[in-house]
């Protein structure tokens, strides 16, 4: 059996969940919403099995090429969505988040899914922890992006299917806060790893610089929520802009520019 079979089934499950959310959007029903949530939970379970299987096969957390990182990012985003939905019942907001997740999966499909051998300097617990925290942080930033987008939509259409503006604002701030905490820990562990592997803890390679920019941007956002002018719409716009910075750091640098960062 192919180790990606579960991933493909998970993708199908997410796709069906999106369709159910669309259905729910046009014909609101609590049952349909529950089916959609069930499909996301099932998809997440299947993707987790696939991730564990690939981890077992590789002997290390498989996050060393673009396919594997997109896979892990998608898994982290699904887990992040489940956290918010199970905790706050955000319902139809899942449509927006799972569409983003399907985009990640669509971008991964067709790419090289092999498990390359690990280069020696990556063979450390710091590497797995650094990457896991980084993508969990990215997932919360993606969640903040989705919630920011939903906030702007809700501010215009005032749909009863979406959470109210106050809750959306609160969730957006929570997503940014959690993402920032995880990303800070990721940067600290990356620093320890770099010091042990290369002898300096901050590198000026372009990936390192943009990771610092991501951190600085979200550190600013954690403060901006206390400024009245930036609350609500301003914060939603910043969440969208911030995710642009995240995407450029994650994909833009690797695809458009050159970097000597070990994961570029």
């Amino acid at each position: 059996m192919n180790n990606l079979l579960f991933f493909q089934l998970a993708a199908l499950s997410y796709l069906l969940a999106v369709l159910f959310y669309l259905w729910h959007f046009f014909r609101p029903s609590d049952l349909i919403r529950k089916y959609a949530l069930g499909l996301i939970s099932g998809g997440f379970l299947l993707q987790t099995i696939s991730l564990v299987w690939r981890w077992q096969l590789a002997g290390f957390l498989p996050v060393t090429n673009l396919f594997s990182t997109l896979f892990f990012f998608s898994w982290a985003l699904a887990s992040c969505y489940l956290y918010f939905d199970l905790r706050y019942r955000i319902g139809a907001s899942g449509l927006f988040v799972m569409l983003l997740n399907l985009l990640l999966i669509g971008f991964a499909i067709g790419r090289d899914s092999s498990l390359p051998s690990l280069i020696p300097s990556l063979d450390t617990i710091y590497f797995s922890t650094h990457i896991a925290l980084s993508f969990l942080g990215y997932a919360f930033f993606a969640m903040a992006f989705s919630l920011g987008g939903l906030y702007l939509i809700q501010a215009r259409i005032k749909s009863p299917l979406l959470p109210d503006l106050l809750l959306l604002r609160k969730l957006n701030e929570e997503a940014v806060f959690l993402g920032f905490i995880l990303f800070t820990l990721c940067m600290l562990i990356g620093g320890i790893w770099a010091y042990e592997a290369w002898g300096y803890w901050f590198s000026w390679n372009i990936k390192g610089v943009w990771s610092f920019l991501v951190w600085l941007f979200y550190a600013g956002m954690c403060h901006a929520k206390f400024v009245r002018r930036w609350q609500g719409t301003g914060y939603a716009l910043l969440s969208i802009l911030g995710f642009g910075v995240v995407l450029f750091t994650y994909l833009g640098i690797g695809l458009l520019l050159e970097s000597n960062h070990p994961l570029s």
Partner: peptide, 10 residues
């Protein structure tokens, strides 16, 4: 001031 400095540096 922190936000202005961080924004300009960014």
């Amino acid at each position: 001031l922190a936000i202005v400095l961080a924004t300009l540096a960014t």
